[in-house]
Computed example of a mutant assay.
Amino acid sequence: MAHAIYPQSYQVANEPSLFARVGKAFADRRAYLEIYRELAAHSDRDLCDLGISRHNIRDIARQAVHGA
């Protein structure tokens, strides 16, 4: 006797699928790079006016995307 196997039945409740997680990772990376590039394009003087040091740009972009 043959049995049908449905991959959806093996997914844990409330856990996003692999495709959803990969899609979110790509979207997060895109957002991170956009924020990073935008801040990096400013001059040191502009960043100083904003209270941002140039070496903190990566941390700021990461926190903006992933939270604190």
Rank of each mutant, 00 (worst) to 15 (best):
R21V: 00
N14F: 03
R58H: 12
D59W: 00
G23R: 01
N56D: 15
Y6T: 11
S17Q: 01
H3W: 05
D28M: 06
E15G: 00
E34D: 15
Q63N: 12
L39C: 01
D49N: 15
D59M: 03
A61Y: 00
V22T: 05
A27L: 05
S9I: 13
H55W: 12
H3N: 08
R45S: 10
N14E: 02
H66I: 03
A20G: 03
I57E: 01
E34H: 13
C48L: 12
P7D: 14
A2K: 15
D49T: 14
V22M: 10
Y10W: 13
C48G: 09
A68P: 09
G51S: 11
G67T: 03
A41Q: 10
R54F: 05
A20P: 00
R30S: 15
D49C: 11
I60N: 01
A20E: 10
N56L: 09
V22A: 13
D28A: 06
Y6Q: 09
Y32V: 00
F19I: 14
F26N: 14
F19H: 05
Q8G: 13
D46K: 06
R58I: 05
L33M: 15
A27C: 03
D49S: 13
A40M: 05
S43N: 08
I35N: 03
I57W: 04
V12M: 10
V65G: 01
R45Y: 12
P7I: 08
A4T: 11
R29W: 03
E34V: 11
D28S: 10
N14M: 07
A2E: 12
Y32T: 04
L18F: 04
